[in-house]
Design a protein around this nucleic acid. Structure first.
Length: 588
RNA sequence: GGUCCCAUAGCUCAGCUGGAUAGAGCAACAGAUUUCUAAUCUGUAGGUCAUAGGUUCGAAUCCUAUUGGGAUCACCA
């Protein structure tokens, strides 16, 4: 719509002798209840037009209509200049922009961006919180790639530490050599089982010690199990062969399980980082910071940074015994990732409980003079809560990722069968469809919401399949495919019609917004923008579908045009859903 | 106590850098299928945009304070 802004600038110069820039003019979509497609707000111009908003709008509108052949007419309501563009303009847009294969395809913009997400712990299976993380990360990566970025998806696996030792210890003590093969359990679930078991036994010991007169705090420290776990961690760090072997074995079980879950979720990674490798990093950055005077050493030899000027606290970056803390590792890992890829920006998809950590991390890197630090961004998202409160893996009060996905598929199956539309499908075909629909419902449910908001998930209230949902959009796509197939449509040439019905024009307007929507979503790292756009588009299509017959159109030219419009809508829906990581079926 | 995030219809949420009478979906009610997939469409009803001030021609949106909810401020990760 740049040509309208340009013309408006000329109009204002001509009418009021004032030079404005494009930024001074705000265009918006015309609201449905008014005539027109584009609206200009004229209030700001009244200062120098010295006329009422209505008069100003009328003057500019008249000028535009005179100068631009694309402008069919205008009306002014309370200072809002609503501009109607000609059907010829919209049809031309359809022919030259929307229908060609390169619609909404962006050329590489030469920028490289890293998206780090998932970050699982190898002591337990993934749960609903991880699902939100994975879907967000994957979708943001797809959106950025779609907007022209080169994207590197990374996963920093938290594969060491005391929590891992807990699972290992419990397995050693109570496992009787159980393996995924012997038990038939998925590897990550098997390991998670022992993590929960550890906690149960640990609590028993705490209770026993409390009965003997210890305080809660003492009991937690003195319980034999926790001491053994700590010992195991030290052995691990010392490279004890037996411990390392056990660690490797159990981790391999978990990775096999994760690979399954990721595949089911439809997410993937280009590069894995492992904390067992990165936890030693960061010490040289500490030296660098000390030299530069960014850090300071306390008498007990611990190293700190003073962020009180920034309204934060003093923060420890190295322990007094010289070992790393979380921050040390993350400093080192950030440098490592930059050395590996030299990306222009880097997005960390991590829950909002770590807002403070990342604020500090980025600030430190800036203070250290890392030029790349300004490209770092923490994509923070709210926790997923259950009606019963927070999810806690240790206590087993979680919605397990694998279970949830299976349930969604089951629900999709029941709903689809009840409608009896796919009786001619083969068994595999059916299974695949249930997967697509079930996952579509789940993914859309999680992605349509602003990531910042915390999410309440009630497992008893199943995710909807009607209304503002993934299946609604999938259904619209299936419908389109069905019509196109019946018509034997194969990408015919240009639209041969001249005049548009309202629903047709609305649909073209909606389609034409897609490229900009991608850019806006990319700039804001927001799948929700895509999700909400697709819903609007699907609604607009369904309305068109309902009001206008396609196969029984009044004449062949009109039929071809409506098929083109349908094909374009189908393509945008498919591509848009792809940006969310959601597949669309040909039939459902 | 400090800092950060959130608060819009009964429920789940849109509302982009301030713009028109605050919009959807679900649930409720009333309708639409001899015609391309009714997982659809049309309509009715539902609001002190947490509260109070301020800035502005104009505030759900920006600023300040208050209330409610959440997170965080570990020599845990």
């Amino acid at each position: 719509m740049d040509f309208i802004i340009e013309a408006a600038l000329k109009a204002i110069k001509h009418l009021y002798q004032i030079e404005l820039t494009a930024a001074d003019i705000s265009l918006q979509e015309t609201r449905k209840e008014f005539e027109g497609q584009v609206t200009m707000v004229t209030f700001p111009f009244t200062k120098f037009s010295k006329k009422s908003p209505e008069q100003t709008g009328n003057e500019i509108g008249a000028y535009l209509q005179n100068e631009l052949e694309e402008v069919a007419g205008f009306n002014v309501i309370k200072g809002f200049l609503n501009i109607s563009l000609t059907d010829g303009f919209w049809l031309n847009k359809l022919d030259t922009e929307i229908l060609p294969d390169d619609f909404a395809v962006f050329k590489p913009n030469g920028k490289k961006v890293m998206v780090e997400y998932s970050s699982p712990n190898t002591n337990k299976p993934l749960h609903l919180g991880h699902i939100r993380n994975n879907l967000l990360g994957f979708s943001v990566a797809e959106i950025l790639a779609g907007a022209g970025y080169e994207v590197i998806k990374t996963n920093l696996v938290n594969d060491r530490g005391i929590h891992i030792c807990k699972s290992m210890l419990a397995w050693q003590k109570f496992g009787n050599g159980e393996t995924p093969e012997s038990s038939g359990l998925k590897g990550d679930h098997l390991v998670g089982k022992y993590y929960v078991l550890f906690d149960k036994e640990y609590k028993k010991q705490i209770d026993e010690l409390k009965q003997l007169g210890q305080t809660e705090e003492e009991a937690k420290k003195n319980a034999p199990l926790i001491k053994e776990a700590q010992e195991m961690l030290q052995q691990w760090e010392a490279g004890d062969k037996e411990v390392i072997n056990l660690w490797k074995t159990m981790n391999s079980w978990v990775y096999a399980g994760f690979a399954d879950t990721y595949k089911n979720l439809g997410v993937s990674f280009d590069k894995f980082y492992y904390e067992s490798n990165t936890y030693i990093l960061g010490k040289d950055i500490i030296d660098e910071g000390l030299k530069k005077g960014v850090f300071f050493r306390k008498p007990d030899n611990s190293v700190w940074i003073d962020l009180t000027d920034e309204g934060l606290d003093e923060k420890l970056v190295l322990r007094s015994d010289g070992t790393s803390v979380y921050m040390t590792q993350d400093l080192g890992t950030a440098q490592l990732k930059y050395n590996d890829f030299q990306m222009d920006s880097s997005i960390y998809v991590v829950g909002n409980e770590q807002d403070y950590h990342f604020k500090v991390l980025f600030l430190i890197l800036q203070k250290l003079g890392k030029t790349w630090a300004k490209g770092l961004f923490h994509l923070s998202y709210g926790m997923v809560d259950l009606p019963s409160g927070k999810m806690k893996s240790r206590e087993g009060t979680v919605v397990d990722a694998d279970d949830l996905m299976a349930e969604m598929e089951q629900t999709a199956k029941l709903q689809t069968e009840a409608m009896g539309k796919v009786e001619d499908f083969g068994t595999d075909e059916k299974q695949q469809l249930y997967h697509i629909i079930g996952m579509g419902a789940l993914k859309y449910f999680l992605l349509k919401v602003d990531p910042k908001k915390r999410l309440l998930f009630d497992p008893n209230e199943s995710v909807d399949f009607q209304g503002h949902t993934g299946p609604f959009i999938q259904y619209t796509h299936a419908r389109i495919r069905s019509v196109l197939n019946k018509a034997g449509y194969n990408n015919a040439g240009k639209a041969g019609i001249q005049i548009l019905a309202d629903v047709e024009r609305d649909l073209i307007v909606s389609l034409s917004q897609f490229p900009e929507i991608i850019q806006v979503a990319a700039a804001g790292f927001s799948p929700a923008i895509i999700a909400n756009y697709l819903f609007e588009l699907a609604k607009t299509y369904n309305k068109f579908y309902h009001e206008k017959s396609i196969l029984q159109a009044e004449d062949e030219v009109l039929k071809q045009f409506r098929l083109q419009l349908s094909a374009a809508s189908g393509k945008v829906i498919k591509k848009g859903m792809g940006l969310l990581g959601i597949e669309v079926p040909e039939r459902m």
